[in-house]
């Protein structure tokens, strides 16, 4: 596939902690193609942020990363040295973080911080870097862009800062952009704007995008592919419409019950919730990790192996229940 930007197979992250070995990411795989948006969904602590940091090579020093395959633009990035990895970061792959208020350096102007990444990766021309910065600031919807270059982060609002972060990520025309919950820290009204902006820019520049979120409303609007993570593993993946229309894993079903869907959720009906908390991921782990919160759990779930049930068109889920069983149950629940 010529359009493939990133290919990851069996990625895991281990972090030694006082109580033993923590396994926050346990064998994740996905591919991202040019112009495609992959959404990684899951609740806090499911390992989605660490997955993105693992791709960028930004894991904490103590963390260990393993993967059968990690190819970025056809190049194996598993054993790249830090110096070579730094060449890719900010250049052909860039990242937008969750915390716009603290992600910009308070001591330098916006212009300085935007230009810096261009000067590092593209060319040593301050004038060109400045022009690019003004162009992108206008692109991300910041008014009087040229005069903003001399401003400091504390002079901008949270939404504006996140726009600056997006502009910064685009400075060198990346192939892949990773957005880790880019709208979580923003006002609801701003969230929608930023999301639209991201989706628009991604289409315009034909970038691959990995959008990490716990908000299924966001996923429904922008995703091409969805990957649902639970306790460091992929429990369900597939094209966005398929996963939303026919979720197969009990966890995905639970998540979907938590959001109102126009035309499907009835007025006055209580929204669902997924009871319980994410399990502890320290030490040896086996079986389905969702079994202690699952309505359908049986003794056999403790022996579940990682063999996803494949449904065609890329839709797959990891659960003992057979497709007929799941789909059979869904029918009465869905017909109002």
């Amino acid at each position: 596939m010529s359009g493939t930007i990133l290919e990851v197979e069996n990625l895991s992250v281990d972090i030694p902690v006082a109580a033993g070995m923590l396994h926050p990411v346990r064998g994740i795989g996905f591919t991202v193609s040019r112009g495609e948006t992959l959404c990684i969904v899951g609740e806090s602590g499911c390992g989605k942020s660490l997955t993105s940091l693992a791709i960028m090579g930004l894991l904490p020093k103590t963390a260990r990363r393993n993967a059968d395959r990690m190819e970025f633009l056809g190049r194996d990035i598993r054993n790249l040295r830090e110096r070579e990895m730094a060449r890719l970061r900010g250049g052909s792959m860039s990242m937008i973080f969750q915390e716009p208020m603290t992600s910009l350096n308070p001591s330098y102007t916006i212009g300085n911080q935007l230009a810096e990444v261009y000067l590092r990766h593209v060319e040593q021309s301050r004038a060109a870097a400045r022009d690019r910065a003004v162009f992108l600031l206008e692109k991300v919807g910041i008014s009087s862009a040229a005069s903003r270059l001399g401003q400091y982060p504390h002079q901008l609002s949270g939404g504006q800062r996140q726009r600056v972060m997006i502009a910064m990520a685009l400075m060198c025309g990346p192939e892949l952009i990773i957005a880790d919950e880019p709208t979580t820290a923003l006002d609801v009204t701003i969230q929608a704007q930023i999301l639209h902006l991201l989706a628009e820019l991604q289409r315009e520049f034909r970038m691959g995008m990995i959008l990490i979120t716990h908000d299924l409303g966001i996923v429904a609007r922008v995703a091409d592919k969805v990957q649902v993570m639970y306790a460091g593993k992929t429990v369900e993946e597939g094209p966005c419409e398929t996963v939303f229309d026919a979720p197969m894993h009990p966890y995905t079903q639970g998540l979907l019950r938590c959001i109102p869907i126009p035309g499907r959720t009835r007025r006055g009906e209580r929204l669902g919730s997924v009871p319980g908390i994410v399990p502890n991921l320290v030490g040896e782990l086996s079986g389905c990790m969702f079994r202690n919160r699952c309505d359908y759990a049986s003794d056999a779930c403790a022996g579940l192996r990682d063999e996803p049930t494949r449904m065609g068109d890329g839709h797959a889920y990891t659960c003992l229940r057979a497709p007929e069983e799941v789909l059979g149950e869904r029918q009465p629940a869905e017909a109002p």
Binding site: M56, L58, M85, A86, R87, L88, R89, G90, G91, S94, M95, F97, S103, L104, N105, E116, V117, R120, H121, M165, M168
Partner: peptide, 8 residues
């Protein structure tokens, strides 16, 4: 973290 993500 941002600075490192920029590949500086």
């Amino acid at each position: 973290r941002t600075a490192r993500a920029k590949g500086l």
